[in-house]
Simulated assay, not measured.
Amino acid sequence: MTDSTNAQGRKPAFGRWLIAAAAALVVLVLALSFLAVNSHRNDTAIDVPTADSADAGFTRDMATNTELARLGTLNGRQAEILYLQLMYYHHMGGVDMARACARQCTVPQERKLAQGMVDAQQSEMELMAGLLKERGSAPR
């Protein structure tokens, strides 16, 4: 069997190749559009909304630029503790989002995916809490 034949020895339909090529072209155009729109941001930090901004609720579980800069200055145990605390907090937001979908989404596959995320992230949070305890700390 060659690359241009399927399991039955037939060549794939031209239409499949055309659809695949069109899909690849769409992905390429979207990627280039994204790069063009965001290329001026190469060297700038991501803006973190303030507590009173319209987007504040959407990033509550994300580390701030200040926290990330602080993490970059730490080493060893101190870096481990801050990293685990930031990730624990980040997972809390993910659990909140996924739990909402698990309760409110109507598509069974989305509900199942969301519940899987809740379970996995809660398990990871337990692991991180244990690692923090071993280091004499706790989630913040």
Score class of each variant (00 low, 15 high):
S4L: 02
T5R: 07
T5P: 00
T5G: 00
T5F: 01
T5A: 04
N6P: 01
N6W: 08
Q8F: 08
F14E: 07
G15D: 01
G15M: 07
W17S: 07
A21P: 02
A23W: 01
V26L: 13
V27Q: 09
L28M: 03
V29I: 02
L30Q: 07
L32W: 02
S33Y: 05
S33T: 11
F34E: 10
L35F: 11
A36E: 04
T44G: 08
A45Q: 10
A45S: 11
I46V: 15
I46L: 14
I46A: 15
D47V: 15
D47G: 13
V48Y: 11
P49T: 01
T50H: 07
A54F: 02
D55A: 13
D55E: 14
G57K: 08
F58Q: 13
D61K: 00
A63Y: 00
A63L: 01
N65V: 09
E67Y: 01
E67Q: 15
A69M: 06
A69R: 12
A69Q: 13
G72S: 14
G72E: 12
T73Y: 04
L74E: 06
L74P: 06
N75A: 14
R77A: 11
Q78R: 15
E80I: 04
L82R: 12
L82E: 10
Q85M: 08
Q85R: 14
Y88K: 07
Y88L: 07
H90M: 10
G93V: 05
G94L: 03
G94Q: 02
V95K: 08
V95C: 10
D96F: 08
D96Y: 05
D96T: 09
M97F: 02
C101S: 12
T106C: 14
V107N: 09
Q109Y: 01
Q109E: 14
Q109P: 00
K112P: 01
L113C: 08
A114K: 01
Q115A: 14
Q115W: 03
V118K: 07
D119H: 06
D119F: 08
Q121Y: 05
Q122Y: 02
S123W: 04
M125H: 11
L127H: 03
M128K: 07
M128V: 06
A129Q: 13
A129V: 06
A129W: 05
G130I: 11
L132Y: 12
E134N: 15
S137P: 06
A138P: 10
A138C: 10
A138N: 10
P139I: 01
